[in-house]
């Protein structure tokens, strides 16, 4: 059983690595530059796949997006570490596993249109862009939004549209969305975003502080428009029993 599982993981990992390399190369019209390639593979293998993320698309996307290009160059050596990284203005780029988990939870399709509230460095949007047709992302802090927009232009992410402004009201002109991701901490789920979520769509929201995500909230809208939320712990927490 264990051998079969290991074999399956190996095959899936090999496939998504190939997929990731070629999809990125095609999307940017040039071969993958190699800096941090082994670190990136190790990140996907040890931090993401090992923690239970199994969606080949998500794994491929996490392999192909060059995380070190989304942070300050002086921090490049920690780009693939299992940690959040400060990006200025009181914001961080999330731990790689959290990015992968949020992406997987959205259960995306290649034709989907996604809205992201809180662009930050742009890394989450870049990961999403590999899996869907369009990503609209809004950043309220102007310098962050502009830097992210320049970064997407430079790196050739054609299907990511950045807007600088208050994303609380979403983008009514582009709505409804198949999925929404809210990376900016909020005291509540913005009602306009619930309205702009397609029936059957999902919204992922990390809960915690800027450094530690304690749980993820997955908001689902059924075909009738009813909304439910699901609390997902990023770790498998086993409560003590009376004997321990």
């Amino acid at each position: 059983m264990v051998c079969l599982r290991n074999y399956t993981v190996t095959v899936v990992l090999s496939l998504f690595i190939l997929y990731g390399v070629f999809s990125d190369a095609f999307s940017q019209g040039k071969p993958e530059p190699e800096p941090f390639w082994s670190e990136r593979l190790a990140m996907v293998r040890e931090q993401i796949a090992a923690r239970g993320i199994s969606d080949p698309g998500v794994l491929a996307s996490m392999t192909s997006v060059r995380r070190h290009l989304f942070i300050d160059p002086s921090d490049a050596n920690i780009a693939y570490s299992d940690r959040p990284i400060p990006i200025g203005h009181g914001q961080t780029i999330s731990q790689p596993f959290i990015v992968a988990l949020m992406t997987e939870l959205l259960d995306l399709d290649s034709t989907d249109v996604v809205f992201e509230l809180g662009t930050g460095s742009g890394y989450q949007a870049a990961v999403l862009s590999k899996l869907v047709s369009k990503v609209f992302t809004m950043e309220i802090i102007e310098p962050l939004g502009k830097t992210a927009a320049d970064r997407f232009n430079k790196l050739g992410y054609k299907n990511v549209m950045v807007e600088v402004g208050d994303g609380y009201y979403g983008l009514p002109g582009q709505a409804p969305f198949d999925a929404i991701i809210v990376t900016a901490a909020a005291s509540h789920i913005p009602p306009p975003l619930i309205n702009q979520l397609k029936p059957g769509g999902k919204m992922a929201i990390p809960v915690g502080n800027v450094f530690f995500v304690q749980n993820l909230m997955l908001v689902a809208k059924d075909s009738m428009g009813n909304v439910t939320t699901e609390n997902i712990l990023p770790v498998r927490f086993v409560p003590l029993t009376g004997n321990q």
Binding site: D166, S187, H188, I189, N195
Partner: peptide
């Protein structure tokens, strides 16, 4: 103009 704090606001609220 963009401060909006509503701790635990119901997802039923559409206003």
């Amino acid at each position: 103009p963009v401060i909006r704090i509503a701790p635990g606001l119901s997802t039923a609220f559409t206003g």
